[in-house]
């Protein structure tokens, strides 16, 4: 049954019977407490990913690797990051594979990507709170593509280190859309800094956004932050 399902996967496409792949789903469930069986399944799934199968088949494999993928899956998934139709599903797995190789692969891919694929990888690095990607993300704050600059800002906000805060404070956004992302990210950063006991760094961020030039709700957030920094 399992072999037949893997055979079906080679020609599987949307619109054909998804139930024919169920033996693979069942094998994943059945192997939860069997690391050797899991590795075997992962190997077979990765092998499919390296072949010329349909987008639907790769979608299926990426969903499975989101659950059971390890560092062994990373090279095959990373190879899909630059494919417009596959990039998201590659991240769907890579973002949740805790092995450091997954973050490294996304950092390595970053300079080679553009558009939505780049935005997606930026978001995944932010979601992983990947401290090592701060320099690369900081460099993207001035990107001419507003959407990329905006994503980089939000990712830095999620990472929330002093270096991320400095990068956000230094940047001069070139559009209102990027500016709002920088504001939100900086406030996100400040909250993280404050929680980590770095009130001096946090206060510097809050002061930056407390001026009359900011919208009312942003001034409110900054004022609250300053009060919190003062222990009130």
């Amino acid at each position: 049954m399992l072999d037949q399902a893997f055979e079906t996967l080679k020609t599987y496409d949307w619109g054909t019977d998804r139930n024919l792949l169920n033996p693979i789903d069942e094998a994943i469930v059945a192997s939860q407490a069997d690391p050797a069986a899991r590795r075997g399944l992962e190997g077979r799934l990765v092998a499919v990913l390296k072949t010329d199968v349909t987008r639907a088949a790769k979608d299926f494999v990426c969903r499975a690797l989101m659950i059971l993928g390890t560092a062994d899956s990373v090279p095959a998934l990373a190879a899909l990051l630059a494919e417009p139709e596959q990039s998201h599903m590659a991240r769907y797995a890579l973002e949740r594979i805790t092995a450091p190789e997954a973050a490294q692969a996304m950092r390595d891919a970053l300079p080679k990507l553009d558009g939505q694929m780049k935005i997606g990888v930026i978001g995944s690095l932010g979601a992983r709170r990947d401290v090592a990607s701060v320099p690369a993300l900081a460099a993207l704050l001035g990107d001419t593509d507003t959407a990329i600059a905006r994503s980089a800002a939000l990712a830095l906000g999620a990472i929330g280190t002093p270096a991320a805060a400095k990068a956000l404070m230094r940047t001069k956004p070139t559009s209102a859309e990027a500016a709002s992302a920088v504001t939100d990210a900086a406030l996100d950063c400040a909250e993280g800094l404050l929680a980590a006991g770095k009130s001096v760094e946090a206060l510097a961020v809050y002061k930056r956004f407390a001026g009359e030039d900011q919208p009312k709700h942003v001034r409110l957030a900054a004022t609250r932050g300053m009060l919190a920094c003062a222990g009130k």
């Binding site: 659950i67 059971l68 990039s87 998201h88 694929m117 978001g123 995944s124 979601a127 994503s151 939000l154």
Partner: peptide, 18 residues
């Protein structure tokens, strides 16, 4: 770790919350 992967799920670009 496997169950924890379901606590936060990846989003399709350009969407993100965390």
């Amino acid at each position: 770790a496997e169950a924890n992967r379901l606590v936060n799920q990846p989003m399709r670009a350009p969407w993100r919350v965390v």
